[in-house]
Design a protein around this nucleic acid. Structure first.
Lengths: 210, 210
DNA sequence: GTCTATATACCGATAGAC
DNA sequence: GTCTATCGGTATATAGAC
């Protein structure tokens, strides 16, 4: 089993699927990008669907272990949450495949989402959910529905990262700046927003003025 | 000009584009769903791209005017923001085409997004951005990047609405409740989250305990 | 394992009769 | 305005030589 060839194919496939989606992806393009013959692609991986599933699960697994590691490296619930956001933003930016694919799957109601993938998504939620719940029980976080908050967090994060090209076009028309686009800056924005909210409370207002 | 035929085609196209995306959509399927001949589709609307653009802009325009109306009906910046979220959630739920299409466009970096659509997106941002800026200037909102906050808001909202089927599967695996799914409940969750954040401040903690 | 050549099917778009 | 028939191009997938 030539693992290097297979990996080259998976990387090329990931890029193409991210750019055009499953239906828009062309096997010829993936093969050319991977530097292999089209027949070799079928020999090493299989059909287009097999290729898609392989890309999905392998990418998700790498992201999952990254997030797992980052959670354990932080102390307080707030720090854990920020660590998750940082890792998520970094992973999503460095693996441009991941976010577009998830967004497309959500857009189709997860119709093509195999159980193995839902299982992995549940693992991520458990990580974030536990962080949220422990923060609530410790009196650090307000009580909100963990699953809905989790989806809100990841939704905001994914949109921020993936929207960069569109954001630039919108910004030019609206006559404003396109805003930050580095993973660190985007994660900081989401963390700031979700931890403290928009409203200026008396305590915060005092803090700002001091 | 038979407006009814054209509208039937646009409705069918909207459904198909939402389900499968631009590349995945089949003209034959759209024509059959609309109950018209394929040649008629080309006669009334034009090419596949023309069809896509028409669906996009007409749907977006209806949503834009809904949001415009809701903004004007509210007083304070916070109330305006909540009104936007409510309208957005309602429109997105009642037009199941809208959110999937936008999500797919963002996922592809807006490659198929015509300038007319970016223009409309900029209009929505101007509405939300002005609300945010006026809140900041009035001392009601903390200072954040308006465009990034706008994207975070819409991203969270869209993910919450569109993720419902996937959320149910994740919830079952994680052994938790799938959470709310009515537009009003989802809008309330996002509004609560973005206005007040997760962190319990001294002032809020006092409020909760009283 | 690797490549060429090709089968097979599908899809977007149109010509042309009525 | 409406339909049938079909063109031309392209896509996935494979057969078969080496």
């Amino acid at each position: 089993m030539n693992e290097t060839t297979r990996e080259r194919i998976l990387i090329a496939a990931a890029e193409t699927f991210a750019e055009t989606g499953f239906a828009g992806a062309r096997i010829d393009e993936i093969a050319e990008k991977a530097g292999v013959n089209k027949a070799m692609l079928y020999y090493h991986v299989g059909s287009k669907e097999d290729l898609y599933t392989a890309v999905l699960t392998e990418t998700f697994d790498r992201g999952l272990s990254s997030i797992r590691a980052s959670v354990e490296s932080a102390g307080t619930p707030a720090a854990k949450l920020q660590a998750i956001l940082n890792t998520f933003a970094h992973f999503g930016s460095e693996n441009p495949v991941f976010i577009p694919i998830v967004m497309r799957e959500i857009a189709s109601g997860g119709k093509h989402l195999p159980d193995e993938m839902v299982l992995r998504m549940a693992s991520v939620f458990r990580l974030v959910g536990d962080t949220l719940r422990s923060g609530m029980e410790a009196g650090a976080f307000r009580r909100t529905d963990p699953l809905l908050t989790h989806v809100s967090l990841t939704g905001a994060m994914m949109f921020l990262i993936a929207s960069h090209p569109v954001r630039q076009r919108v910004a030019r028309i609206a006559g404003v700046d396109a805003g930050a686009h580095t993973p660190a800056e985007l994660a900081a924005h989401v963390g700031n927003l979700f931890l403290h909210g928009l409203t200026i409370t008396p305590a915060k207002a005092k803090k700002v003025k001091s």
